[in-house]
Amino acid sequence: MAELSYREAVYRALAQEMERDDRVVFLGEDVARAGGVFKATSGLLERFGPERVIDTPISEQAILGTLMGAAMTGLRPVAEIMYSDFFGVCWDIVANQMAKTRYMTNGQVSMPVVIRSGNGGGLRFGAQHSQSIENWAMAVPGLKVALPSTPHDLIGLFAAAVRDDDPVIFLESKSLYATKDEVVDGEIVEPLGRARVVRSGADATIVTIGAMVYRAKDAAERLSREFGIDCTVIDLRTLVPLDVTTVLSSVAATSRLFTVEENPQLCGWGAEVVSIVVDEGFYTLDGPPVRISTPHIPLPAAAELEDQVIPSVDRVVEIIMKRMD
């Protein structure tokens, strides 16, 4: 057992898989010599050498095209797209190529790629370096989507993603890099598609993911302490595959559903979760499901504005309080 930051977990995750399988290579902008813009990959170059840890030009299409071609011909490559906002310049390779090629070729081609990317707000970077793009990725058939919230899950879900034969969009919450947690020693693998119950409570189910897990948990603790409302908090961990079973069984027990989402409101993942619960768990509900998300706006840069729009502990508490009345 050791205390590890979310940032240090990135290194350990990559090292664990690169040590185990020499088909795993890692490429991205500034990832090798500079150790990454978030310093999450420092030391990898020294440990695994320049053939496996590769600094690339600022060429996101070339990075991801290379990833795909390498995966189609026997490697299990990993790329870093520095900020998930940059998926905008290489989305063709992700959504048109990686996601569809197995299907279009009737299963002739396998696509074992992992694309790591810094996702989400909280660092005052403004609208082009702060987006939450999990809902973009989730909307494309053929992409798996993981958002680890803890150092342990980062290592474990990353390992599962590398070992998976499908493309995985692996979204690390930038605002969590400095957070720390205890991590067990030895190899960690956490299967994709299994949610984690962070906290159990009888009165309502809060479904969340990524950086919002901490806010949901803090809100649940305050609701319990100050208002006697006891919530279950579920960290989905992956959006595709989606652990519907854990959500439905929790809602069956609590009869209320709230989602806490960092992505903008329209077509956010919570809409899909609510739709499933309404369709398949309608008669277990005692009240309307409620989505708490960032409004449908680009993210502003100023601290006061950014804090106002991304769901905060206060806002989660307030909305749940009001709607549980």
């Binding site: 990075i63 991801l64 095209g65 071609g69 189609m72 490697l75 490559p77 390779i93």
Partner: peptide, 8 residues
């Protein structure tokens, strides 16, 4: 770029 990946 995909062909580049195969060459890689």
């Amino acid at each position: 770029p995909i062909a580049v990946g195969a060459a890689f």
